[in-house]
Simulated assay, not measured.
Amino acid sequence: MSTSANGPAQGPRQDPTQTTTQRRTLRQDLSGRTRDVRGAIRRQIENAQSQATQAGAGAGPVAAGLVGAAGGLAALRSIGALRDWLTRLFDEYLLEPATGRQVQAGQHWTSSYTHHSYETGLRQARSALRTREYDIGDRGASAAITDQPHEQALQRQYEQAYYDLEDAVENTKQQVTRTIADGGYIEAESGEFNKRELIADINTEIEAQFGTRIRMVAAIEPVDAANEAALTAYQRAGVEQVGVEPEAPDEAGEQDLDWVTAGDWRVCLECRGLSVDGPYLLENVLSGDAPRPIRDSHLGCRCFLLPL
């Protein structure tokens, strides 16, 4: 049996939202796309520097940009040009920009994760409603998800996932721009451009932003989509009160991100408190006057709302 500072771990992790696979695969997808961005930046810096040197154009960054003749780095002599270059790379490899209509229609690459998580939450919610003898008909979740209330809720989740990712990408571009614009990549004695240091600094900044911003998308969106589906289903069924079903930790006591477990190794202190403080009026949860998993708990929360 494994232990940690809080004592022995007891029992396997429980994920009431059943979004473990979606969270893991979305995180892997985001990680792969982030690696692609880093690789593209490295290749373009190396290619530009090589051709600039061969052409006798000097070495490295000037003012707030880079000098080069290839790889999209030509004449990057301003912050604006530098940001345009980064935008092209981040858009191509990570964000894949979409129009508002495309996002609402579920045509962005994040939409499949959102849709699957929403349908998973809806399936669990309908099962819980049947157990509690609510009349919800005989249709399954895959059919019920096409009803207008669920279509509208799902569109909102599509938008939330896309714009959260867009915001994380924009923040990352800003940090990388500052890193490059700060300069300091010309060797004082030789005057040579230290491309390795520049690439390393860019990679460090991107990794830092991936951990603090981009990775949040994978931790938040599937759980929120599952609970959104449940809340919409409960509202349609006439549920008045809901309770919180919290997650238990895994055998090693490990949690994604900053999950703090309680001494009894059943739930984290924060979510145990939210569970004990319930039940909550459904209308208050919908209006934001009562807590909702992950939005009002913590990053890494897997709690799920159940009808009473």
Rank of each mutant, 00 (worst) to 15 (best):
A9S: 13
S142P: 00
L89P: 01
E240V: 06
A64F: 04
A9Y: 11
Y158F: 12
Q49I: 10
G253C: 06
A125Y: 03
P291W: 02
L308E: 11
D256R: 14
P12I: 02
E240A: 07
H150R: 01
E159S: 11
E187V: 11
G65H: 05
D29F: 03
T34V: 15
G121F: 02
Y93F: 12
D256P: 02
S4N: 15
D15G: 01
I294L: 11
Q54R: 09
E159D: 06
E166N: 12
H298M: 05
A63K: 08
H108L: 01
C271R: 06
C303A: 09
Q107L: 14
R43Q: 14
D296E: 15
I136T: 05
A161I: 01
L269Q: 11
C268A: 09
Q174F: 10
E254Y: 02
E197K: 14
A69R: 07
G253P: 01
S31M: 07
S275I: 04
G65P: 12
Y158S: 03
P8F: 06
I202W: 04
R83M: 12
C301P: 01
A226Y: 03
I214M: 09
E240K: 13
A230E: 01
G68L: 02
D15T: 09
S297A: 15
G121I: 03
Q209N: 15
R139E: 15
V242F: 01
V276Q: 08
G80P: 00
A81H: 04
S2A: 15
G71Y: 04
R43A: 15
S50V: 10
E245S: 08
G121H: 02
Q160A: 10
S31D: 05
L281P: 05
A218T: 05
S297H: 05
S127G: 11
R215V: 03
T99D: 03
I214L: 13
V285I: 14
R23E: 11
R23D: 00
P293F: 02
L165W: 11
A218H: 05
V239C: 04
P307F: 10
S297I: 09
I199V: 15
Q54E: 13
P307I: 12
L95Y: 04
E133H: 12
P97R: 10
R27S: 08
A5R: 10
R126Q: 15
Q10A: 12
L299R: 14
L282P: 00
T146K: 08
L154C: 02
V103K: 06
T204A: 14
V276K: 06
